[in-house]
Simulated assay, not measured.
Amino acid sequence: MFKPAVPALALLLSGAVLAAPVELKVSLKVGDQPLVLGQTYQNPAGNAYSVNLLRFYLSNVALVRRDGTEVKAGGLTLAEFKPGGPTQEVTVLKMEVPTGDYAGIRFSVGVPRELNHLDAAKQSAPLGVGSGMYWSWNAGYIFYRFEGRYMRANTPTPFLLHLGGDAAMQNVNLADLESYSTPIPVSEGGGTVQVNLDVSKVFSAGVGGEPYDLSVAKYTQVHGGPVALQAYTNLQGAWSLDTRTQASTQPSISGTVTVPAGMPLEKVVVWLCPAKDAMCLEPPLKALRLSGSGRSAGYSFTDLPPGRYAVWAFYDKDGDGVYKHGSDTMMVPYFKGSPMTMPMGNHTMLQPTLVMPPAQGINLELK
């Protein structure tokens, strides 16, 4: 569930830019498996533990465009996971953003400083005292409230981790501006951003490899100090953008290459490469050799993660499948646009065709 303190988005739109609804959903994980509240797991220190409550504040939420600029969502949200409630794909924030293809999301876990030191008794949800996220003995809010039980001498024993304080504000960046491997498409009908929080990473070893051992008193009741800093560092890397939950309707990139008269199709190799700024980065992600008769042949690359790709074709004169100088013959690609070629001295390479498949057009369930 989520409890917004103020409207989820205050966004000014101008001109013909369309706004579309977007939901931010959170799933709790233990490794790559869904967290089940109350179920027993084992941490690296050998403690058998279960989780029965997790709450945290989210603020400064922004979708990130491919050029690095942000579309900000205002407001503050308290995400809450407790027994009897869901832990997977839980909507924690609703917003409206311009339609388009985004490169990721950024957000903070915690309460901004200007709100963190208000009188909780005078605030409404989610900052009121009823939130269960306020330290009566210490000014400020609890940013993460993580509680459960572990087995100590066969006896279920409570443990808790409460992180807070201005210095514990955690900035999470899940935007890939290099390869655009995790696109977030927002159509007129809206979109969904799904993120994972791997709670098991809380228990990762600290500096020097000291285990996060719940049987040691300093790890059982944590409100601050070195253990809180260790947990803060561990949680920084516990977030990920979930791409597998996006729907799949077109798990391939395909097209047609037309070669000049007299060029055998089997001499042409097509590459699919991870791309940035239309450049094909070696080695190719996938490669295939054309076949058939005539002057045209199709290509298809399947089982692809979402991302930014370039499609290259070249005349493989010596048959080794490696692109290099050696052909001055023009070839014409046809893929989602006008044909283009790029003559380069004594050879010709296909002008890279930049392909940015939306997440819903890629089969993300295949592993």
Results as ranks from 00 to 15, higher is better:
Glu80Cys: 07
Asp32Trp: 07
Val36Trp: 09
Gly46Trp: 02
Arg65Ser: 04
Asn43Gly: 02
Glu114Met: 07
Leu115Asp: 09
Ala45Met: 02
Gly85Gln: 09
Ala45Lys: 02
Pro98Tyr: 05
Leu93Met: 14
Leu93Glu: 09
Asn52Ile: 01
Pro86Ile: 06
Ala20Gly: 00
Ser50His: 09
Ser50Leu: 11
Val26Ser: 03
Gly75Ser: 10
Glu114Lys: 09
Leu78Gly: 03
Leu13Gly: 11
Val22Asn: 08
Val109Lys: 07
Lys3Ile: 15
Ala73Lys: 04
Ala103Phe: 08
Glu114Pro: 00
Ala73Ser: 12
Gly46Lys: 01
Leu37Lys: 01
Pro34Tyr: 00
Gly15Trp: 03
Ser124Thr: 09
Ala120Glu: 10
Leu13Tyr: 06
Ala120Ile: 08
Ala10His: 14
Ala121Phe: 12
Arg66Asp: 13
Asp67Val: 02
Arg65Asp: 08
Lys72Ala: 12
Pro98Val: 02
Leu115Val: 06
Ala16Gln: 11
Val17Gly: 12
Leu28Pro: 01
Val30Ala: 09
Gly85Cys: 00
Asp119Glu: 03
Thr40Lys: 14
Lys72His: 08
Gln88Pro: 02
Phe107Ile: 03
Leu11Cys: 11
Lys3Gln: 15
Thr87Asp: 08
Ala19Tyr: 02
Val92Asp: 05
Arg106Asp: 04
Pro44Met: 00
Pro83Ser: 07
Ala48Glu: 12
Ser59Ile: 03
Gly31Val: 02
Phe81Ala: 04
Leu53Gly: 08
Gly74Trp: 13
Pro34Phe: 04
Ser108Arg: 06
Val22Met: 10
Ser108Lys: 04
Gly31Phe: 08
Ser50Thr: 12
Lys122Leu: 15
Ile105Cys: 10
Thr40Tyr: 12
Val36Asp: 13
Leu53Ile: 00
Ala5Met: 14
Pro44Asn: 01
Lys72Leu: 07
Lys82Asp: 08
Val64Ala: 05
Glu70Ala: 13
Val26Pro: 03
Leu93Thr: 04
Tyr49Pro: 03
Thr91Ile: 14
Val36Lys: 15
Gln33Leu: 09
Tyr41Ala: 00
Val64Phe: 07
Asp119Phe: 03
Val97Thr: 04
Leu35Tyr: 00
Ala48Trp: 06
Ala120Gln: 10
Ser124Met: 10
Pro112Trp: 05
